[in-house]
């Protein structure tokens, strides 16, 4: 059965040396893109502590006394505080769906959605840590595992990847609840990337949660992982005229028919669902990207960098 084959593939490390090498090449390209102003570190409008001097201001109560320029005090006999232009770092939060519906692929040679989701999560985390963004990763499953991070700095890359390797599929989790909890807990707004197939989500609830997060300054990206067979079920070789289908998430059984009307109905309902998913959050500071499992993770990363400019 396909699931067995998928397990056979998942035995391989998520991040092989080859995958890591390709990610590094993408990251090097992202630096050049950053210089071109399409991505990378943002120059902040805020003044703050930084080696790069910007200006002086008179000391006032509450200022960090560590920033007092004692040489200026000696010269001018007045307290001045050094202000500098600082580069901002993003808080990148990744919510990755590890429910059972993700642990599926239509063919033996295609990786499962979970594998692709974890690889994409690792790639984005790799890129963010490389650029000194603060990264946290939250798996969403029935028995929620401990969150990774937030961490900052390149020294955490290897640890993050090892942590991702240990994740495995679990029963259905509540993605909306996890997102709400994260937004509530974090005082500082950041970028929230949700990596999931979104198949088990109640889109109304999800939209409500997204609107709340956006209202608090969060930027949200829905990275939808899908298997090609989900877009074209007739191509699935295991489907015969009539099948007894089992929902991987709910274990519900239902007879389905692989004939033209049934497939057409399937495609229509999926199209409507996708339209709904794309318009979640009203399009303001939200983004929806479809990523097929057949697409290599480095290509996905390039696609995100080049066409969206989302990842810094």
């Amino acid at each position: 059965m396909i699931r067995d084959d998928a397990r056979a593939i998942s035995v391989e490390p998520l991040f092989t040396d080859e995958v890591l090498a390709r990610l590094r090449r993408v990251i090097l390209r992202s630096r050049r893109l950053a210089r071109a102003g399409l991505s990378g570190e943002h120059r902040s409008l805020r003044k703050g502590p930084s080696p790069e001097f910007a200006d002086f201001k008179a000391y006032s109560v509450g200022d960090d006394y560590r920033r007092i320029d004692w040489r200026a005090y000696a010269r001018f006999d007045a307290l001045f505080v050094r202000e500098s232009e600082i580069t901002t770092e993003f808080d990148v939060h990744l919510l990755v769906d590890v429910s059972r519906s993700m642990d599926w692929s239509s063919e033996a040679g295609i990786p499962t959605k979970l594998r692709r989701a974890l690889q994409l999560t690792g790639a984005i985390g790799y890129l963010s840590l490389w650029h000194f963004d603060r990264v946290s990763i939250t798996p969403v499953g029935s028995d929620a595992q401990r969150r990774f991070g937030p961490v900052q700095g390149r020294t955490n890359i290897r640890r993050m990847l090892s942590w991702l390797e240990r994740l495995h599929a679990q029963r259905e989790g509540d993605l909306t609840a996890a997102m709400s909890r994260l937004v509530f807990e974090r005082r500082r707004a950041g970028i929230l990337l949700i990596v999931s197939d979104f198949l088990s989500e109640d889109l109304e609830r999800l939209e409500g949660a997204m609107r709340g997060a956006v209202g608090r300054g969060w930027e949200i990206a829905l990275l939808q992982i899908y298997d090609p067979a989900e877009a074209d079920p007739a191509a699935m070789s295991v489907l015969v005229e009539t099948n007894q289908a089992i929902d991987l998430e709910t274990t519900m059984k239902m007879p389905i028919r692989n004939d033209a009307p049934s497939v057409a109905g399937y495609l229509a309902r999926r199209r409507a669902w996708l339209n709904e998913l794309e318009t979640l959050g009203g399009g303001v500071r939200t983004l929806h990207v479809q990523i097929p499992t057949t697409q290599a993770v480095d290509q996905t990363l390039v696609q995100l960098l080049r066409n969206i400019g989302l990842v810094s």
């Binding site: 059965m1 396909i2 699931r3 519906s101 993700m102 599926w104 959605k113 197939d197 198949l199 088990s200 298997d227 989900e230 699935m236 295991v238 489907l239 015969v240 009539t242 099948n243 007894q244 289908a245 089992i246 929902d247 991987l248 998430e249 709910t250 519900m252 239902m254 007879p255 389905i256 028919r257 049934s262 109905g265 399937y266 495609l267 309902r269 999926r270 669902w273």
Partner: peptide, 23 residues
């Protein structure tokens, strides 16, 4: 034959097959 079992990630887009007289 008894329809073969298959596992799908979700059944949310499928309509249950209704057995007709031919079935």
């Amino acid at each position: 034959k008894t329809p073969p079992m298959i596992v799908l990630p979700s059944l949310r887009f499928w309509e249950p097959a209704i057995a007709d007289s031919a079935d």
